[in-house]
Structure formats: C-alpha cells, structure tokens
Computed example of a mutant assay.
Amino acid sequence: MLSSQQVLPIDPKWYRQVLGQYPTGVCVITATASDGVPVSMVVGSFTSVSLNPALVAFFPDRGSSSWAKLRDCEHFCVNILGAEQEPVCRQLASKDPNKFDGVAHRISERGCPVLEDVVAWIECRRYAITDAGDHEMVTGEIVALDIAGGGLPLLFFQGGYGQFAPGALVASEAPGLSLAQLRQVDRARAELERLAAETGGRCIVTVRAGEELIVAASAGQGNIPGIATLVGQRLPFRLPTGSVFAAWLSDQEVDPWLGRHDVPVRETAATVLARVRERGFSVGLISEAQRIFSAQLAAAGDDEIAIEALEELISDLAFDPAEWTDAIKGQARVVSVPVFGADGAVAMALTLYGFPKPPEGGIDIYIAHLIEAATRVSAGLGARAQ
C-alpha cells in the first residue's frame, strides 16, 4: 500500500493522451520585445483567474525559446484564434524570424500586436510570474479587451486542431430560475438547433421569473456574428417584449400586471394582447429604437445590462402592428411564439431574430417553422393543443 507521501511516476506519453481528452482553446500571446521586434507564442493553457482585480493567466514551458523573448515584456496581448486561423497559428508558432510577415495585425498603444480576425483579444500588464513545475504561471492584469470577430474559436483536441460544433447553449444556472424551468428549457434544445439551421438566424428561449424575463438558452449565430450569446440576460416583464407571455394570462393575472404600466400603454394593451393571442405570435419591427436596443445588447458582451437601463429602450420598440400586410411583414425583425406547459400556461417563449432576408413566402415561412417547433416542445412538456 502506498503511503500518503508516495506518488507513482506518471508516464509523459500517457499524461498527454489523458489530458488530450480535454479540449482547449488556442491563443497567441503577443508582445513587442525591448529591441522593437514583435514576438509571439501559441498556448493552449490560457484561463481566467480573478474578476476583482481582473486577472488571467497562461502557463509557458520554462524551456520555450518564445517564452524567453516574452518573459521581460511588461505588456502582452492574448489573441483568441478563430476556427479558420489554423494557418496563422502554425506560422506564429514557427521559429521563422519573420513569422509576423503576412499576418494581419495592428499595434496597440501599449505596443502589443493585436491580430486581425481573432474571436477576441485581451491586453494585459504583467502581474506575476510564479513557479509551476517545468512550466511557469504568468498572471496578467487586464487593461483592455474586446470581442473582435465573434464566431467560433480554434480548438486543440486529442493532438490536433479543430473547431467547436455548437449546439444550443443552455444556462447552467441563473438567479430566479428553478431547476424545473431549466429542465424544460433543456427539452427545447433540439428544436432550437433545428430552427437556427432552418432559418440561418439566432433562436433563444426566454422564461419568466417573477417580474423579469431571462434568456435561458440560445442557438445559432444569425447574421450578427459579433454579438455574444445573450444567455443569462434579464429583460423586464412588460409590454412589448412580454406580450407573448401576457397574452395568455388570466384576467385575474393580467389586470394587476397592466397596472404597473403607464396609462397610455394600459389603454392599448388589451387590444395588443388580443392581437397576439389571435395570431399566435408576437412580432417586432425594424426601427431606430430596435437598432439602438440591438447595439446595446451587442456592446454588453457577456455582461448583463441592468433592467433599469433597458426599460426606456424597450418602451420605444415597435411591436405587434394592427395591420399584417406584405409591406409590414418586410419590416419584421423579431418573432416570438409561446410554448405551453402541462398546466396550460406559457412555460417559455421561442424567439427568432438575426435571420437573413426571408425567402419567397416572406416572414411567414420563418413564423411557420417557429410555431411548429413550439408545438413540438409544448407536446413534449405534456401540453394539450391550444
């Protein structure tokens, strides 16, 4: 029997095979050496460390010649490579003294090369270098960062490069969401993926948590690849974005809910909700307010926007027009349909947006796909036909 102090030696080859079952993102660490020459090294060991202060880290091999050139640089940039940047990765990992030749990049104000077409970049100030066996742990304090192209990252898995084949992203947890709600959302995953593939848009699942709506799942990139996933984003449960939930509330439920709206909204709300219920969907139209709203969400990245900051923007959105003509249909940019639970109440909403110009048949084709998907999810939750 081994004592608590004894550790069996680990075979290096077996170590690599076992750890190779864990996929890692591929990053290029870039900086400018003291002689003014840009330097780089490719790593698969990048990780977040701390939010306050904002710290990240990577783990270079002590014997790396690239790390020897980077070690004394006060600032460095972590470039998260995109799925199509394998050639860039190989070039910057080489020992070619001119390996930046032909690689599109800019130099930041701190002197760090920032690569073009990356998924995101994170510029850091060296914070600490500590021992980590035959490697070192380099911790950097973030001084600037941005989502660049969005899109899919390049991955390293089982000894080779590849890319992530994304399915629907479902929230792991979120304050206010119950385990039962997350289980229901998980059952919509296949339909989200199908919708995204059929329409070329982005599909999200929204659930109600008290007086808020929470984006609990997302699938697809749509025609807005720079926008990060909205999973976890909270929205106020109010008109017009809450129409698809409110349209099926009972009179006892809808009256106090409407009482929290401004008088002009309350005066038209009954008509709007009846319209949504009759059509079976809620639709948002293109407008300046819609563009501003989308831009705010895009700029937020992974940071949630406070409910208060969204209230005024949402109140200006154009939703659920009285007329549903071909001309109006051409302005549709967001469509939501309800998914019903076994109790007959709206359990969640499926929302489609970011879709390309509709094919012949217009937005009706997309709405049909959305309603069919919602019907299948509702049936899976035990709901009776509405």
Rank of each mutant, 00 (worst) to 15 (best):
W67L: 05
V337N: 03
E288V: 10
Q290S: 12
V272F: 02
Y15K: 12
A216N: 14
D262N: 08
A174G: 09
I328K: 01
D302E: 06
I305Q: 01
H369Q: 09
G226N: 05
P359Y: 00
F76I: 07
T199M: 05
E304W: 01
T199W: 04
F245V: 10
L145Y: 09
F293R: 13
P358E: 04
N223E: 15
L177N: 05
V119N: 04
A342R: 11
V39W: 13
G284R: 04
A374R: 06
T375M: 11
A31I: 09
I122Y: 02
N79K: 02
F293L: 06
F237G: 02
A345S: 12
P166S: 06
Y353C: 13
I305L: 14
R234S: 11
F355Y: 14
A57D: 03
E123C: 04
Q290A: 15
L179H: 15
F156H: 07
V265Q: 13
G361A: 00
S50Q: 09
S287L: 06
Y353Q: 11
A318H: 09
E193H: 03
R376D: 15
D146S: 14
T351I: 13
R277K: 14
A373T: 07
Q6C: 03
P38V: 06
D11G: 01
V334G: 01
P12W: 01
V231A: 07
T206R: 12
V26G: 08
Q85T: 10
P38Q: 03
V49M: 11
C203I: 10
W324A: 01
A318F: 01
V263A: 15
V78N: 00
F157M: 10
G160C: 10
L2W: 12
E312P: 00
R208E: 13
V283G: 04
A132K: 02
R277I: 09
V26L: 07
C124F: 02
M137C: 14
G20E: 05
Q17W: 10
F245Q: 04
E372L: 14
I107F: 10
T206E: 13
G200P: 07
A300I: 00
S64R: 03
I224P: 00
R106C: 08
R71K: 12
R275Y: 02
I129E: 13
E212Q: 15
A190G: 07
G102N: 02
L258P: 09
A188G: 11
D326N: 01
R384V: 15
L317Q: 03
T268E: 15
L115T: 05
L81K: 02
P97C: 04
Q386R: 15
Y22E: 08
G220A: 07
G36Y: 06
E198W: 03
C73R: 05
G220P: 14
A332Q: 00
Q158I: 11
Q296D: 07
I224N: 14
